[in-house]
Simulated scan of single mutants.
Amino acid sequence: MTASRNPWMRAALRAAGALALVASMAGCSGVGTLNALTAQGTHTVEAAVAYGPLPRQRLDVYRPRVAAPAAGWPVVVFFYGGGERADYRFVGEALAARGVLTLVADYRLYPEVRYPDFLVDSALAVAYGLDHAARLGGDPKRVFAMGHSAGGYNAAMVALDGRWLQATGHAPRELAGWIGLAGPYDFFPTDNPDAQPVFFHPDYPPNAQPIGFAHPQAPRSFLAAPLKDQLVSPERSTRQLAGRLEAAGVPVTLKMYGRVNHATLIGAFAWPLRWMAPVLDDVVGFIGTAPPAP
C-alpha cells in the first residue's frame, strides 16, 4: 500500500517532517525554513518603518491583499520572544492572510538595555499602531497588542499597566484586546539566568509583573500556552493570570494546547506546523469577535 493510500503512513510522514522543523526551531535554520515556506501572494510588506528615533525602534507592516471591511482591517502589533522581526515573517503572513493588518516590531534587548526600556519601546510601537491604523488601512478601534514568550510579557505590561501607554498619550482602554502566548506573567524570583540581569536579580523592581495588574478595566484578553512548558510555567503564569482577570470581570479566552511546546506554540502559525495546534484559528477568532474599543 502506498503512503498516499495509507492514513497511518501519511500521518507518520507528516509527523516526521514536522519534527524535523521542530528540532530546528531553536536556531535560525528552523525559522528560515518556516519563512521560506511562507506564501508571498497574500500580503504586501513595508519593512523597517520607524516608530521611534533609535535603530531598534523599527517594525514591518504586513498589509492583507484581501479587501478591508468598511472600518478597516483589525490591527495586531506583535512582539516576539527572541531573534529579530525578520524571523517572524511567517507570523505576519499568517495573520495578514486572514485579514489582519500586522505590525511585527523590534525592540531594544539586553544587554543594550534592561527593564523597563523595552516596555518604553513596546508602548511606542503600540502607539504607532493606534496613531497610524487608519492611514495603513486598519481600524483604529480594533487594535490588539500580541506577544509570544518575552514578547508576551511586553504585550501584557502595555495592555494591563497604564503607565507605558500613558507616556505616549494613549491608554490601554483604546485597545480592543491583547493576546499573550506562553508569556511570563508571574516569575519573581526567577532562576532563569537570562532573565535575572534584565530584572536586577535579586533586587527586583516593584510593579514589574503583569500578575499585579489584573483589574476590571483591563482589555479583553486571550491567553494561551502549552500544557507542558519547560521555560515558562503555564500554571503560574497563563492560568493564574487568566483566573485573576476573570475574577476582576474581564472577558478572557484561555486556550491550552497539548501537542506544542514553548517554541512551537508560535511555530504553529506557519502552515507546515498548523496541525500541531489551532492557535492561529483561535487567535483570529478572538480578534474577529472582539468588539471595538470604546
Rank of each mutant, 00 (worst) to 15 (best):
L13R: 02
G99L: 04
V113M: 09
V66F: 00
L37H: 01
Y80K: 05
A50S: 11
V66T: 12
W8A: 14
R10N: 00
R65P: 02
Q57W: 06
P116C: 14
L13Q: 01
G99I: 02
L19P: 00
R58P: 01
A16Y: 02
P53S: 13
F78L: 08
G17S: 06
M25S: 12
V76D: 05
G32D: 15
A12K: 08
W8N: 08
R85I: 04
A47S: 15
A67C: 05
T42W: 12
Y62K: 01
T38L: 01
R98C: 10
G99C: 04
L19C: 03
V100K: 06
L95T: 08
D106A: 09
Y107M: 02
A39I: 00
A3Q: 06
P69S: 10
V22Q: 08
T44L: 02
V113T: 15
P111I: 13
S29C: 12
P111M: 07
L21F: 02
R58I: 00
A96N: 08
A97N: 06
E93L: 04
A47Q: 14
F79H: 06
A12P: 02
W73F: 13
V61Q: 01
A96E: 08
Q57L: 03
A26I: 07
G82H: 14
G27L: 08
A16N: 02
E112Y: 10
T38A: 09
V75A: 05
L101F: 10
C28T: 14
A12S: 08
A86F: 07
R114A: 11
P111S: 12
V76Y: 07
Q40D: 14
L101A: 05
Q40T: 13
Y110M: 05
Y80L: 03
V45C: 05
R108C: 04
W8L: 14
M9Y: 05
G32K: 09
P53E: 11
F90H: 14
P74I: 11
F78I: 03
R63A: 13
L21I: 15
R14E: 12
A67W: 03
A96I: 04
R10M: 07
A48E: 13
H43M: 10
E46R: 15
T102P: 07
A71G: 10
L109K: 15
A68V: 05
A86R: 14
G82R: 15
R63W: 09
G30T: 11
N6R: 14
G81C: 07
P53N: 04
N6A: 12
M1R: 09
G99V: 02
G52T: 06
A50H: 04
R89N: 07
G41Y: 00
R14F: 02
